[in-house]
Amino acid sequence: APEDSLTFSLAWRLQRPTHALLGLPLAIGVALAEALEVFGVRPQLKWPNDVLRDGAKLAGILIETASDGGRGDATWAVIGIGINLAVPVGLADELQRPVGAATELQKAPRETVLAIIASALAGVLEEFEQRGFGAFVKRWEAFHAYAGQAVKIVDNGRVVHEGTAVGVDMMGRFLMDTELGQVEVLAGDLSLRLQDG
């Protein structure tokens, strides 16, 4: 139902070439998590683009980019965000996994919620444009859902890495300690999961 979620897209022109946008989904996650805290929600971030609450998916982030015409020094990013405000009865059973919700956001006018989130996004996008993802590493790790936990990286159903979640680096790559040493994982068609999940 429309009142059960808040979904929107934001177009933003960044004075950075497309290849310099590594880590942008994680920075957007920081903005969204910090905005949700304003409403009393305690979010967690799951690399690379999910927001969790008590381990269940609360929100998702999807970013599409396009070079700004013939100019190689600017990129348009369209940032899509979807937040669960309520969980319909039976949805968790249908999906066979828990679903998070931020019912606190239903108490304020939807325009107010959107304005607070948009303001947080604007601040983060301006800072990202100037300083890149390196400026957000510690802020992202403050919300890290799996810090210190046993995790695995799955590629098309095949486990490619197993180890302990550490954090992220200055480029937004996921860091994990494995039996062979520390591994950096770059986003792609990969899925991060808890070992027992």
Score class of each variant (00 low, 15 high):
T65M: 11
T65G: 03
T65W: 01
A66F: 08
A66T: 10
A66P: 02
S67N: 13
S67I: 15
D68Y: 15
G69M: 04
G69T: 06
G69P: 02
G69Y: 10
G70N: 12
R71F: 14
R71S: 12
R71P: 01
G72A: 14
G72K: 15
G72C: 11
D73Q: 08
D73L: 09
A74R: 06
A74F: 03
A74Y: 05
T75H: 02
T75Y: 04
T75G: 03
W76F: 07
W76R: 07
W76G: 00
A77V: 03
A77H: 02
A77S: 10
V78L: 06
V78Y: 05
V78Q: 06
V78K: 06
I79L: 01
I79N: 00
I79Q: 00
I79Y: 00
I79W: 00
G80D: 07
G80Y: 03
I81L: 05
I81G: 08
I81N: 07
G82E: 00
N84I: 11
N84G: 06
N84A: 02
L85M: 14
L85Q: 03
L85P: 00
A86L: 08
A86R: 09
A86T: 08
A86P: 01
P88S: 06
P88E: 11
P88H: 09
V89Q: 14
G90R: 12
L91N: 06
D93L: 10
D93S: 14
E94P: 03
E94R: 15
E94T: 12
Q96L: 13
Q96H: 15
Q96E: 14
Q96T: 10
Q96C: 11
R97C: 10
R97G: 02
P98Y: 06
V99S: 06
G100V: 04
G100D: 01
A101W: 04
A101Y: 03
A101G: 06
A101L: 06
A102Y: 01
A102E: 02
T103C: 09
E104N: 09
L105W: 02
Q106A: 15
K107L: 11
A108Y: 09
A108D: 12
P109T: 12
E111L: 14
E111C: 07
E111R: 12
E111V: 15
E111F: 12
E111T: 13
T112N: 14
T112M: 13
T112P: 08
T112W: 08
V113N: 02
V113H: 01
V113Y: 00
L114T: 13
L114K: 07
A115P: 13
I116L: 08
I117K: 02
I117Y: 01
I117H: 01
A118M: 12
S119G: 08
S119F: 04
A120V: 10
A120R: 09
A120I: 02
L121K: 07
L121C: 05
L121F: 04
L121P: 00
